[in-house]
Amino acid sequence: MMADIILSLILLGSLIGLAWPFLLYPLILRALPTKGEHPVAGPTPTASLLFCAYNEGAAMPEKLDNLAMLKGRYPGLEIWAFDDGSSDDTAAQIMARGDLVSLVRGPGRSGKAHGMKQLAARARGDVLIFTDANVLLDGEAVERLLARYADPAVGGVLGSLHYLGDGESATAAVGSLYWRIEEMLKDEESRTGNVLGADGSIFSIRRDLYPDFPDTVLDDLTVSMAVVFAGRRLVKAKDVIARERLVAARGDEYRRKVRIAARAWHTHGHLRPQLRRMGALDRFKYASRKMVRWFGALFLLSGGLAAMALAWRIAPWLALALLAAGGGAVLAGVLMRRGPLAAIVDIVIAYVATLQGVARAMRGNTFAVWNPAKSR
């Protein structure tokens, strides 16, 4: 009897751990009061747009056209790019548009964090806008982003990322669903105070808040969290739209998640002293949206083992039947590119990749450089 209770508690705890960041945490956020913004009349701040690139030759024509469109709509926009030792024609394409983009070339592979620091040191805009080489911004993005800085309490503003190509594979579909949930969580976090961290697709901060940090950390998280640590608000603008193509291949997505998780855990260690000084609500948000997810594979494993043990105690044949059904579903999902079984496999793969990345970071390994996904 006691064993049944323990196993049931393990199963329940595992289910709560899996559901917390995607179901329970959003419900709690929705119950919290809204924290409004208080704009003050004044001049629109100047802006510098920064991005790093490595072997993005295929994406550069569309990226440069997009930047030209933004510059035409916002003539005062300063644009900087860092080439991280590309072996294709990325740097040549950017140099050919020297009237539009100022290029800094790295000595070789030094990583995005290093590159962004080089650009931030050269930028002169009141607001630094960070984006990725393969991301396209809507025409109104710069104007709408800067408008949120009319509130002097706002130190950083995120945009909204819309993914393209979600019907190309189960991997892309799962990635799209995950990101829609992520965008919804950021909206609710912003409404109730601070968003707890940005991704690199589109975010901005006041230039005087840009921090110092080592090249090995996740610069998007480190830079955006500097706003919160400074006592300013990090908010999200839903009407600032960035667009990016999804990764369609499982191998590409697995490697990407391992790299991001390893850098995120390493960054967590770097930021830990400042994280401990945050307010209670921000610490709760950070743990709920980030830390719980890092260990999702452990919740999945412990819950699965507890369920199997409970089934075995009821009847051994039931446990064997569940094991056979689960194994068959996983095999079918691995062989398929689309459909619910393929999506379930991709969710499990995402959990495993994230935990592997965290484990690598715990052993002292991290990633300073990156490679564009071939299936994007």
Results as ranks from 00 to 15, higher is better:
114 H>V: 03
107 P>S: 04
93 Q>A: 11
88 D>Y: 07
100 L>H: 07
111 G>K: 00
90 T>A: 05
80 W>D: 01
86 S>H: 09
111 G>C: 09
101 V>E: 01
117 K>V: 02
78 E>Q: 13
97 R>K: 15
121 A>M: 12
103 L>M: 12
79 I>L: 05
100 L>C: 07
87 S>C: 15
93 Q>W: 05
99 D>W: 09
114 H>F: 12
114 H>G: 02
104 V>Y: 13
99 D>E: 11
96 A>P: 10
118 Q>L: 14
121 A>L: 10
81 A>W: 09
99 D>G: 15
104 V>E: 12
94 I>D: 00
86 S>T: 13
111 G>E: 02
96 A>C: 13
87 S>I: 15
78 E>S: 05
108 G>Q: 09
108 G>D: 10
114 H>C: 10
78 E>Y: 05
115 G>H: 01
101 V>R: 01
100 L>R: 09
116 M>Q: 14
84 D>Q: 08
79 I>S: 03
92 A>M: 06
97 R>W: 02
98 G>C: 04
110 S>T: 14
123 A>M: 11
78 E>K: 06
123 A>C: 14
110 S>W: 06
121 A>N: 15
117 K>N: 06
113 A>H: 03
107 P>H: 11
107 P>E: 14
108 G>L: 12
94 I>R: 02
104 V>M: 14
90 T>L: 01
92 A>Q: 15
109 R>D: 04
89 D>W: 00
95 M>P: 03
122 R>C: 10
84 D>H: 09
118 Q>F: 00
104 V>W: 08
91 A>T: 04
123 A>V: 08
105 R>A: 07
83 D>A: 07
89 D>Q: 13
88 D>K: 09
104 V>N: 12
114 H>L: 02
121 A>S: 13
